[in-house]
């Protein structure tokens, strides 16, 4: 297993955000985490990338516990987090945003190659590489946020609601790219409210309800599950 999370409990002040959550992510493919707004999906990703420390439980990446590590050290280990709401740096240009993604890398030559690769995934970013990120549309900012994460040369990609607030056409484009990236050998954890979209590109899924894992299974089984159909797929 690439990522193993055991019995995670997360509390903010007195509010419980995650209760006894265990999730496993294999070396390849996309694992999705479904759930309504406020179910605790983002909290889970924030624990993995070290922004939030759990009250109890463990997170292991390649067998090594991440609990004692800072967010910077976790990036070094190969985890790249595309946060909710994209969070690109608005005053930096597109290219500067991408290069900040490679902040910890020293392999100059490979950085240039990866920049080219990101531009080939997202031609629109190449066209606008000198434009400041604040002038970009929501979809373009999402592409930039994903591209920025790829620039870290990660071993695992964490994607938090990449479809949020985007027009259906743009969502399709983003999903297409994510599945292309994953087929290229990049494992990913996809957190989504849009369940049908998430299940369409995932191998395995977890359903988070009231801060706990309510259901898990192979994506095709989840698609056929009555509860999932009623609660998340609209019939």
């Amino acid at each position: 297993m690439l990522l193993e999370c055991d019995n995670l409990v997360v509390r903010y002040e007195r509010v419980v955000a995650l209760e006894d959550v265990s999730i496993r992510v294999p070396e390849s493919g996309v694992v999705c985490l479904l759930g309504a707004n406020g179910a605790g999906k983002s909290s889970f990703l924030r624990v993995v990338s070290g922004l939030v420390k759990p009250a109890s439980g463990d997170v292991r990446f390649h067998g090594e516990s991440l609990l004692k590590l800072s967010p910077e050290e976790i990036v070094v280990r190969g985890v790249a987090h595309v946060p909710e709401g994209r969070r690109v740096f608005p005053g930096l240009t597109v290219e500067e945003n991408l290069r900040v993604g490679a902040y910890l890398r020293r392999d100059k030559h490979a950085i240039e190659e990866d920049l080219e690769r990101v531009f080939s995934y997202f031609p629109r970013l190449r066209e606008r590489h000198r434009q400041s990120a604040r002038t970009m549309s929501g979809g373009e900012q999402q592409m930039l946020a994903i591209g920025r994460a790829l620039m870290a040369k990660p071993k695992l990609l964490l994607l938090d609601e990449p479809s949020m607030g985007l027009a259906p056409v743009v969502v399709e484009e983003i999903v297409e790219i994510i599945s292309r990236i994953s087929r290229g050998g990049m494992p990913a954890v996809l957190v989504e409210q849009n369940a049908s979209l998430a299940l369409s590109i995932s191998e395995y899924g977890y359903v988070l309800e009231n801060r706990r894992i309510a259901l898990e299974g192979v994506a095709s089984d989840l698609r056929g599950n009555d509860h999932v159909r009623r609660a998340y797929l609209g019939g």
Binding site: P71, H81, P83, F89
Partner: peptide, 13 residues
């Protein structure tokens, strides 16, 4: 300066 948390996620101390 623009987003401290997003900067941390890029490995910036």
């Amino acid at each position: 300066a623009e987003d401290r948390e997003a900067a941390q996620l890029q490995g910036i101390s």
